[in-house]
Design a protein around this nucleic acid. Structure first.
Lengths: 163, 163
DNA sequence: GCGGGAAAGTTTGATATCAAACAATATGAG
DNA sequence: CTCATATTGTTTGATATCAAACTTTCCCGC
């Protein structure tokens, strides 16, 4: 039964733990890889205290000034209710601003403030370093194929496709 | 406000949202893929109400009867404090049991109950289906390379390696 | 215009997670 | 043996997340 990379058949007493089929499963490794990446990014930007999720939000707002919360959530892959506290925090920090829209008074038009743009630029440096490290780990020759697979997974498992 | 420092284009009224470099970044797609997988698994096992994390815990316990919570956490990639409520819940449901260890009265020896083994068997069916779906999306010819990359990421970004 | 249903955001409730502080127990140095 | 330190698990505090219920506003058909 496919012992993990650690491979062993010892008693679970001390060092080697049997993961069973888990080690061979894509889902399990996908989660560990994602979390490792998340933690690494958080460590890198630690002092800024803006985590990967916030970074993605800033990038999307920066690229789409005036975007609504609902569209932002869809683009970032977060529920709209998740964005409420996140955006409130970013607004309180003065990184974004929310204007009421004249035509549709239900929605907000979100955009970066100058301070938000500055923070985004700083975070982008960390992100670039982080992604360079990931690129290295993935390998230049594998990157495109790797991304293609991730996108297939994202699309293939989207919401209802769980047939 | 006279906002729109970019002036370029206003909020994409429809579905055309600019992700900027995000779409090309491994970290961003890794997160979306992981979450899609997580959601798909949760949908699949919905009625059982045991999510991917719990499944991994049961698998590891099943493969390492008598394991301690600390080692279990390390194997599953969760902090020990995360396991406290999770194991309490599993114990309350009668799926696992925790015995005090004679030699070391600080730690517990965790093992599956017969009911836990039964649930594990049932979940394994869902997991197999889930992983079959993932295998399909990844492609048989790419699976090994894909897993190898994930493991490189996991190892390369582990805790301190964020140099 | 007037309702009824749809849409944008917020609120609430339930999980999951980590990190730091803590209590109980174990181990090792003198 | 005794005390300092390490380890195991729990508690507490802070985030992040989703889903469902809810409020406000919009749009459509009549």
């Amino acid at each position: 039964m496919a012992d993990g990379p650690q491979g062993a058949d010892e008693a679970p007493a001390d060092a080697q733990i049997r993961l069973g089929g888990l080690a061979e499963q894509i889902a399990f490794n996908l989660r560990l890889a994602q979390e490792a990446s998340f933690q690494a990014f958080a460590r890198r930007t630690g002092h800024v205290s803006l985590r990967p999720g916030r970074f993605a939000i800033l990038v999307i707002i920066g690229n789409n000034p005036g975007i609504s919360q609902t569209m932002l959530g869809a683009a970032a892959g977060r529920d709209k209710s998740t964005l409420t506290p996140a955006l409130a925090d970013l607004e309180k920090r003065g990184l974004i601003q929310r204007r009421r829209v004249a035509d549709d008074r239900r929605s907000y038009a979100i955009s970066l403030t100058p301070a938000g743009e500055a923070v985004l630029r700083e975070l982008s440096i960390h992100a670039a370093t982080h992604d360079r490290q990931l690129d290295e780990l993935v390998g230049a020759e594998s990157k495109d194929a790797f991304l293609a697979i991730l996108r297939r997974i994202i699309a293939g498992l989207a919401d209802g496709n769980a047939a």
